[in-house]
Computed example of a mutant assay.
Amino acid sequence: MRSHASLIATRDVSARGARVRLVEAGEGPALLLVHGCLSSRLVWEDVLPKLATHFRVIAPDLPGFGQSEKPPPARYAYGFNAFAESLVDVVAALGLGRISICGHGMGGSVALTLAARHAALVDKLVLVDPIVYPPRTDALSRLANMPIVGPFAFKQLCGRTVFRSYFKDRVYAPDSTIPWNRVDHHFDLFNAPAAREAALATLRALHDTRPLVALLPRVAAPTLLVWGRSDRTLPVAQGRRLARELRNARYEVFECGHSPPEEVPDAFAEIAASFLATQGGKAA
């Protein structure tokens, strides 16, 4: 296999009527990387080149986030199901066939949804601190779900300082080196009316995870479940619970917060690549 890991191409595809911006690199089995809420494909920036030495890696910005189109909620039903169906369109547009999916936070929830509803498309799953059970509430989520005043405050008053505080206090472990340039880039992408409206609709959709929990028995793909021991939003006990409830899951805990791909990128890329290279979820 030729080494094209360093050649990262950017392109747009149409997914459920929305323009989706994505990057891809590498050759081999297809691996889709799915970011979380208030984030973008940049969350994979440190691990994408490493994974692309083994796989054809595709990292999209979900509709409403990053550099993808941000349709109004009246036109796009932000939430697990809509995002999963958009990714089905991405897979079809790129002619990928059967894929593996690695999802972080909300992206893990989307990956689970896709695996449950389109089992024939999914080879393996890597779930990174996914939102499956109710998370510990944070200021932004509480604001988004407040009636009347909440939407106004979220869309008009949530500035860079609040955004930075959310990532510092809820995403990264206390002893992590915070990639402030990336966080500020996320804020710049978020800081537009259409993006804020999309983020608000998404946060509200994440409030009720019961439909996702009901789908868990339908997930048959071999799964690597990765958790940060110091995740302050989704306690590590939730990972242990999910590992029990999934049919074929392996559970690994890293010494970091909510974002192993950013906090421990080398260790994360190594274990993810090793798992994805095995057959049937067991060592080849």
Score class of each variant (00 low, 15 high):
residue 203 L to H: 04
residue 75 R to S: 09
residue 226 V to R: 04
residue 58 I to V: 07
residue 53 T to F: 12
residue 38 L to V: 00
residue 239 G to N: 00
residue 168 K to A: 13
residue 68 S to H: 11
residue 111 A to S: 08
residue 1 M to V: 14
residue 93 A to I: 02
residue 203 L to F: 14
residue 233 T to V: 11
residue 225 L to G: 08
residue 113 T to G: 01
residue 258 H to L: 03
residue 25 A to P: 06
residue 240 R to G: 14
residue 239 G to I: 00
residue 26 G to F: 01
residue 243 A to T: 10
residue 146 M to E: 10
residue 222 P to G: 11
residue 255 E to H: 06
residue 120 A to T: 12
residue 228 G to Q: 02
residue 157 L to D: 13
residue 8 I to S: 03
residue 38 L to W: 00
residue 283 A to E: 10
residue 62 L to A: 08
residue 147 P to W: 08
residue 1 M to A: 13
residue 170 R to V: 03
residue 31 L to Q: 04
residue 11 R to Y: 00
residue 261 P to M: 14
residue 22 L to H: 00
residue 165 S to D: 14
residue 87 L to Y: 14
residue 90 V to F: 12
residue 174 P to Y: 01
residue 9 A to P: 11
residue 61 D to H: 09
residue 209 T to L: 15
residue 48 L to T: 00
residue 38 L to N: 01
residue 189 L to F: 15
residue 274 S to W: 11
residue 91 V to P: 03
residue 195 A to G: 09
residue 131 I to W: 08
residue 186 H to F: 10
residue 36 G to S: 12
residue 157 L to P: 07
residue 235 P to Y: 07
residue 181 N to C: 09
residue 61 D to V: 08
residue 190 F to P: 11
residue 62 L to E: 10
residue 101 I to T: 10
residue 187 F to M: 04
residue 145 N to Y: 15
residue 156 Q to P: 03
residue 25 A to R: 08
residue 62 L to I: 09
residue 208 D to P: 01
residue 67 Q to A: 13
residue 129 D to L: 15
residue 196 R to H: 09
residue 109 S to G: 13
residue 4 H to R: 03
residue 47 V to P: 05
residue 167 F to I: 13
residue 68 S to D: 07
residue 241 R to G: 03
residue 173 A to M: 01
residue 215 L to D: 10
residue 241 R to P: 04
residue 45 E to I: 01
residue 172 Y to L: 07
residue 146 M to N: 13
residue 150 G to I: 03
residue 85 E to K: 13
residue 219 V to R: 02
residue 56 R to K: 03
residue 153 A to T: 09
residue 183 V to F: 02
residue 182 R to F: 13
residue 265 P to Q: 06
residue 186 H to A: 12
residue 261 P to Q: 13
residue 93 A to Y: 08
residue 228 G to I: 04
residue 65 F to I: 05
residue 258 H to Y: 02
residue 113 T to Y: 05
residue 40 S to G: 00
residue 185 H to S: 01
residue 219 V to W: 02
residue 14 S to I: 11
residue 72 P to K: 13
residue 158 C to S: 06
residue 268 F to A: 03
residue 242 L to T: 05
residue 97 G to V: 00
residue 30 A to H: 08
residue 91 V to N: 04
residue 169 D to G: 14
residue 183 V to W: 07
residue 209 T to K: 04
residue 256 C to D: 14
residue 122 V to K: 04
residue 217 P to S: 05
residue 259 S to K: 04
residue 142 R to C: 14
residue 62 L to S: 14
residue 282 K to E: 15
residue 202 T to S: 03
residue 209 T to N: 06
residue 82 A to K: 10
residue 237 A to P: 15
residue 54 H to G: 06
residue 178 I to Y: 06
residue 251 Y to S: 01
residue 204 R to M: 14
residue 85 E to A: 12
residue 264 V to G: 00
residue 171 V to P: 00
residue 201 A to C: 05
residue 114 L to D: 02
residue 13 V to L: 00
residue 157 L to S: 07
residue 263 E to F: 02
residue 79 G to Q: 05
